[in-house]
């Protein structure tokens, strides 16, 4: 299990972070995906690659998380009693550029350009028609290009 975890954690966490743009949320999502893997371990068909199976869970949960955050209204926290958030304050350029995109466009861009799936594989992972994947990729990349991201 540890070998599997160490091999797949970094990309799972990075993918979640790029979609939700929240380190705590990304950590939860990546953990939840691995916990789902532990629960399903005995039933998992070991002839299938683990990565795509895991990434499907990560990205779908990340999309749901990002949408739910957009809907909920949070009241101010009682900060005087709370330990400080230790996550990094640095925001890479890529993350800033992706942030304005809707979650489902961010997700397909992350799957295509970080996790290097083909559009056909993305369609299968997210249970979407291939045309939908292509159009989300195109719209997302167009938005990034308009924003001046080189090579997008």
């Amino acid at each position: 299990m540890e070998r599997l975890y160490r091999a797949h954690w970094p990309r799972a966490y990075r993918a979640a972070y790029l979609v939700v743009h929240d380190s705590a949320g990304a950590e939860d999502i990546a953990q939840e995906a691995f916990l789902a893997a532990v629960r399903a371990l005995d039933r998992f068909d070991r002839r299938r690659p683990f990565g795509p199976w895991l990434h499907r869970i990560v990205v779908n949960r990340a999309i749901d998380w990002a949408r739910a955050r957009a809907l909920r209204a949070e009241v101010e926290a009682g900060d005087e009693l709370v330990a400080p958030d230790m996550s990094s304050n640095g925001v890479p350029e890529l993350v800033r550029r992706l942030a304005p995109l809707p979650p489902d466009q961010r997700a397909v861009i992350v799957l295509r350009h970080l996790l290097e799936y083909t559009p056909g594989e993305i369609a299968e992972l997210l249970d979407l028609p291939r045309g939908t994947v292509n159009s989300r990729l195109r719209r997302g990349l167009d938005a990034l290009r308009d924003d001046g991201v080189p090579g997008a």
Partner: peptide, 18 residues
């Protein structure tokens, strides 16, 4: 690309998953 707090998140996650 590396996400924020990646290494510590990995160690925290491993404690939970293990």
């Amino acid at each position: 690309f590396r996400a924020p707090d990646e290494h510590r998140a990995e160690e925290r996650g491993w404690r939970v998953v293990s």
